[in-house]
Design a protein around this nucleic acid. Sequence first.
DNA 1: TATGTATTGGAATTATTATTTCATATTGAC
DNA 2: GTCAATATGAAATAATAATTCCAATACATA
Lengths: 281, 281
Amino acid sequence: MDERVPRDFETLRATILDRRESLPKRIAQIAAYALDNPDDIAFGTAASIAASAGVQPSTLIRFAQQLGFDGFTSLQQVFRERLRERNSSYDERLQALRAKADSGAGHRAIFDGFVAAASTSLNDISRTLDEAHLEDAISLLAKAETIYVLAKRRSYPVASYIAYALGKLKIRNQLIESAAGLNAEMVGFATPADAVIAISFSPYAPATIEEARSISEQGVPIVAITDSSFSPLAQFAKVWFEVAEADFAGFRSLSATMALAMALTVGVGEKRRDSGKRRRG
Amino acid sequence: MDERVPRDFETLRATILDRRESLPKRIAQIAAYALDNPDDIAFGTAASIAASAGVQPSTLIRFAQQLGFDGFTSLQQVFRERLRERNSSYDERLQALRAKADSGAGHRAIFDGFVAAASTSLNDISRTLDEAHLEDAISLLAKAETIYVLAKRRSYPVASYIAYALGKLKIRNQLIESAAGLNAEMVGFATPADAVIAISFSPYAPATIEEARSISEQGVPIVAITDSSFSPLAQFAKVWFEVAEADFAGFRSLSATMALAMALTVGVGEKRRDSGKRRRG
DNA sequence: TATGTATTGGAATTATTATTTCATATTGAC
DNA sequence: GTCAATATGAAATAATAATTCCAATACATA
């Protein structure tokens, strides 16, 4: 028999979702209950679970068998394993990660190091983010006709994600790429009715700074994401955010910057939807 | 009787620690085991736990009774409740944040949501990453003459960061961009001596899949980062990673993918340096 | 509508597991 | 060293829980 039994929760979940349509009524009922209340499956007895889900214990067993398990008990193992793996608290794990990464034990340690750096950065930013700045930045950007997105090198991935997200939200935007010498002209099109998101970290890419200066001289408001108050970007910006990313193996995390970037993007999307409603309503 | 039975894990833990000195030998043994392996207590049977701890089942029951429980079963409830709460905290927090953001509770909630999604994703991946796959992927990539990086749309920011990092590490690489119809030719240059990092998540960009297929038919080994075993990328890949990113407000986090991408990149850098040393030394 | 097939409910059966019991061992006080 | 009190081991027993079975029902097909 090539019947492949799901051994981890995610596979199991996918399998259930996949077959959902073809399941008999009562089996589907217990399937839905299982995905909605995985903890109950992990700890309950066949009888108690069946009762909560409104079916007979035998149905529960048939459900398990239909998925390839030989009974309820082995299905339950998967749900228990899931809980087991989520066990240790976040801080404990982070601490363990740091220790392991420091001890330099193979490639897993490298990975752990990046995870730890990302987590640290996220922690930091959620502590230090200035809410008023966030509101200001979003208001400013929401009013813009076109949002220009300006970033090079290390910050470029963030810019490209912003551009992608703005596009999906149907917000007009222009990514200022460094393909040719066309940037200067592109920047020249911006007017005070537009706005810029500029991202740059030390060592600041000279092109980014130059373009930011030039665009701000045209009276275009800038929202900057950068790493210190000494950053040249901070001087040109109407609103700026200080984001401290932890680094590992010479590369800084992008996770905090990404989170902020997405909050700005989605925030602008929401603000536009709201004010659109208000204007129309 | 004013015998106060600990109802939550922390109280229980404190109680045990408090009485540690005065407990009989075997009871102390099971007490230590319980605090060291709380998960085993939560999921095991009296017999299996007793065996692991090196005592008789009856001792386990006596231990429970000494703490004021009326048997092993009620002691076990406390250990199960602990897991239940731990587990729900993250998912529930994310869920709560989503609800809060939906209800239009300010932009800070959106930001918090993205931070939580990123944290959750990092949490997940550091739990589920397969170390052997990581080693395989790094070995494979370290041997490549040129590393091609293939990703579109949502995954593109990751690809661009990989390309940036590879460049800084002086590792020859080629980002397959979608600027023009040149991709097909670019892909055509790859040989079995090269390698590909391909990244794609559901809904898989057709271009990515097509290019991955064609490049794998040329015998170029592929390392894929994708989101499920059903992904078409998984079929073409020599090594593939399953990364589950949490989403918020319709946008998935990239943090886990980024961490993995950086680990691959830096891992390849280290491996090359090492084997370079060996060759020269 | 008739007929075979798949699904379901509920009780009987089997299994697993917790608990109790009792014989034995250990410990500490005198 | 002896005695009493306490602790422990091992197996018997009780309890709980999973599974199976069969009759009843719903469902689809001709």
